[in-house]
Design a protein around this nucleic acid. Structure first.
Lengths: 137, 137
DNA sequence: CAGGATCCGTGATGATACTG
DNA sequence: CAGTATCATCACGGATCCTG
């Protein structure tokens, strides 16, 4: 595992460049790094939701950001958007199989985060104490 | 799994709020969403590296961003920073156990991304074709 | 109800220059 | 070599107003 150059390098390095937007990995990871995407994915993993339900569930999200987030997820084939021709309009969102897969992975990350949250907070405290007035925050 | 409200909601929603910076999950996930952090973590999973080696490996990163990235990772206890009192200075970085754990999880995400890259790209194309001139990009 | 259009402040990021 | 400091930019998110 520490010989030569075998870690995860081969996976991310060759095409992780910011100037290679087509190399994909980053594109997907970006969605994971997005606060709202993760929260929406999480909420939808509990079942189909309407726009308003999502907005209430993911408290704090603005109308604008919810729309953008949900659109991007739809564009990536992670959620489906269904419009019912009622008056006023009714729209529901649900995870696709692909979305469920990603949700599961993200959930793993989230669980790890929860489990290590305290330890990391501790590290930060000690670090901050040892580096007073650091510009790195 | 779809009864009532059981998905991932309980994990992320209660404390994912942007105004609860102490609720942790987001803090860690942010690091995953960060381009450079992922790349550095990835490179270090292959072994100890010096600052310059990292900069060359993670091609495209600016000196400034590499410093910030590596500092934050150190602050979170994900990597160790070792300074050798040579002239000029020599500094090496390596993953901690915690860092290795996170790397492994991130690697899972990256693998999924790779595997689904084509499908997602396809979804985007169709979506873009079906939504000409959309502001959602 | 769901969401498009606009305006605008702020923080993250890149480029550049200097140093122990 | 391995940073630190400064400056300019710019995309991202929030707030607000309007509509099918």
């Amino acid at each position: 595992m520490s010989a030569g150059h075998t870690g995860g390098t081969d996976l991310l390095e060759p095409c992780g460049r910011a100037d290679h937007p087509d190399c994909g990995i980053r594109d997907v990871l970006d969605r994971v790094g997005d606060t709202w995407s993760v929260l929406v994915l999480s909420e939808l993993s509990a079942g189909t939701r309407r726009f308003g339900e999502l907005q209430r569930a993911v408290a704090g999200v603005s109308q604008r950001m919810l729309t953008l987030t949900v659109r991007r997820l739809e564009r990536d084939g992670l959620v489906t958007r269904t419009v019912y021709p009622t008056v006023p309009a009714t729209v529901t969102y649900a995870l696709t199989d692909r979305g469920r897969e990603l949700s599961a992975l993200v959930r793993g990350l989230a669980e790890w985060s929860l489990a290590n949250r305290a330890a990391i907070a501790g590290s930060r405290e000690s670090w901050d104490a040892a580096h007073p007035g650091s510009t790195v925050r």
